[in-house]
Amino acid sequence: MDPALILPPSPDRRWTLAKQIGVNCGVARFWGIDDWWEYDTLLRTRNRFEDHDISLRVVEDRPPMTRTVLGKEGRDEEIATVKQLLRNMGKLGIDTYSWVWTENPVGVVRTSDSIPDRGGSRKSGYDHAWDRQADDHPEAGITETELWENLEYFLNEVVPVAERAGVKMALHPDDPPLSPVRGVPRLVTSVEKYERILDLHPSSNHGVTFCQGNFAAMKTDIPSAIRRLGDRIHFVHFRDVEGTAESFVETWHDDGPTDMRATIEAYRDIGFDGPIRPDHVPRMAGEKDRDGAHAGYTDMGRLFAIGYMKGLIEQTA
């Protein structure tokens, strides 16, 4: 297993902190950058990481795919961009693409970002009762059957490109794993749905971003789910939640209901040796979220999580 951190595409304090705590594996997200999937942008980003002795292993972002998810005119142009991204990643040796299958945005990811926890830290959470009161999304008329058809069309187009490029596609669960949200169905909400999705286009390059918090919200046994999905897990979000998909809070990594050591043991059992990063941490004293849409990405909680995660990895070796 390769402990990793999500980092901006250009060096800043977070890059320095990553190096100081011994993290040499980077996950890139391109918030605010246009056409980031083009070769030159990815090349410069990859080489910046390399120049700082950090290996860029994962792109965790998505080109525009609204027409693709909804099956609308223009989806082939969107899919062509995803193919371009996969080919460019393959040329540059960036081996994992973490993506989502959700019309974006549908609903809010969190309904609260300031829930009190130990020592005055603040954690984020979701309560579907609040989100249910919002107006339905304009695409609320789409059916689950149509979404399945659109997903199969997409996979048949892009998985062969990923295979040729040597890139592993890792599908993230819907967050929260509920259907519908604001009237729009969602597909990636259970282990069984994952198995159906993987069967739509069987390939070792078509796999899973195993986000432990979302699987916990599904009320599934996490170690069992890891073993069930096995070698189709390409990337891990190491986190935990307390509650259900309808109402949950995101916990400290050492203070949630999941046996986190047992999850590391399960990853060892399936032979997982890919990137694993902490996700969605509480906000600690003196910290501010970078913006309201990205609660859970402050620095100090992630540093704590890396230390905790490294300890578990060493303990189970």
Rank of each mutant, 00 (worst) to 15 (best):
I21T: 01
G256T: 10
E250T: 10
E242S: 14
V236M: 04
S203H: 13
A80E: 15
N104E: 14
A216G: 13
P64Q: 02
S124R: 12
A262N: 05
R228F: 03
G207R: 00
V161G: 02
R302T: 04
L92R: 05
D113H: 07
R44D: 15
W15V: 06
Y153P: 00
P278K: 01
E265I: 08
L187M: 13
E265G: 01
I313F: 04
R67F: 08
R14D: 12
A140R: 12
Y194C: 03
P9S: 09
I306W: 04
V188I: 15
M89D: 07
Y126E: 06
R75Q: 08
G107F: 09
K123P: 00
E242R: 15
D95V: 01
K19I: 07
D240W: 00
I276N: 01
G120S: 10
D291E: 07
P257V: 07
R118G: 02
R132P: 00
A28G: 08
S190D: 11
R227C: 02
D127E: 13
D61P: 00
T96C: 13
P177R: 05
N88I: 10
S247E: 13
G230L: 08
F215Q: 07
G301V: 11
K19M: 03
K193T: 14
R290K: 07
F248L: 09
P223W: 02
D117K: 00
S203C: 11
G271R: 08
G141F: 01
T316F: 02
L92C: 07
D299E: 14
L92G: 10
P202D: 06
G301F: 02
L171S: 12
V249W: 00
L85V: 04
H237K: 06
H234P: 12
G125L: 12
N156F: 04
S224Q: 15
A285H: 10
H52K: 06
V58W: 02
S98V: 15
I222S: 07
L147F: 12
H206V: 00
P116N: 03
T16N: 08
A262W: 02
L155K: 11
E78H: 11
V58Q: 03
A4C: 14
T145R: 15
A170N: 04
E73R: 14
L42Y: 03
K19T: 13
W130T: 09
E195R: 15
E152G: 10
G307K: 03
R182F: 01
V188P: 04
R44Y: 09
V188L: 13
E146S: 15
K123C: 10
P160A: 09
A285Y: 06
A134K: 08
G26L: 04
G311N: 13
L229I: 10
W148G: 10
G107I: 09
W36E: 01
R29Y: 07
V59G: 03
A165R: 03
L70D: 00
L92H: 09
G93T: 05
G183E: 10
L17S: 07
G90C: 09
G93S: 08
G207E: 04
K168I: 00
K91C: 00
P9I: 08
